[in-house]
Amino acid sequence: MSELPSTPLPAPFPAAGNITDADREELRRHGILMTSLEELYNWGRSNSIWPLQFGLACCAIEMIAAATARFDIARFGAEIFRPSPRQADLMIVSGTVTKKMAPQVVRLWNQMPEPKYCIAMGACAISGGPFKQGYNVLKGVDRFIPVDIYIPGCPPRPEALLHGLMELQKQIKREHLTGADAARHTRPEVPSEFPIPAYGAHDLEPTMNPAVWKPAPPLPRSGKA
């Protein structure tokens, strides 16, 4: 996102820039709580992430386990699993995304309102995992939708999911509402919907979305290999 829009962005919110953390700490000791709207907004958002109730495969069972009494995802404000994408903030891609399922996953992502986040849970959602050699297996959900957090494991333990969720909360807290590095959902020029692949005669068409996913440069290897 190096290109900036031609229209000038509004000036940053003044409270964020003019008072140092030390000043704020000093004020807090005198009983005055000072914060910025941005901070308050991000604090609220990050502690009430509503995930989409959307299980794909084995990892979904561990996702359910994370919601039960022992792990209790409610401690992090993310226990309200919404069956409808229209009410959800977070898509946890929990399991193998097959090529037959990929259009539906993209459609669900498109139906979620901004701000929205995506966690790729487990090896299959990241890269195809153990099923990478399958003809019907998508080699990573990031070929079609942008992913914020990757949680490795097969399946990841519920603790790993909670850790991923906490990392996402940190990421949300770092987001800016204005300025050059404003968050994705505040910039109308950044797409929030992505083309849905079609079922082809041999494979999905297209097989990936080049706007979202670019193959990484090849691994360094010797010339004779």
Partner: peptide, 13 residues
């Protein structure tokens, strides 16, 4: 012959 979509795979497989 399955579709060739192994564009980049950092794998020892």
């Amino acid at each position: 012959v399955d579709p060739d979509d192994y564009e980049w795979e950092p794998t020892p497989h």
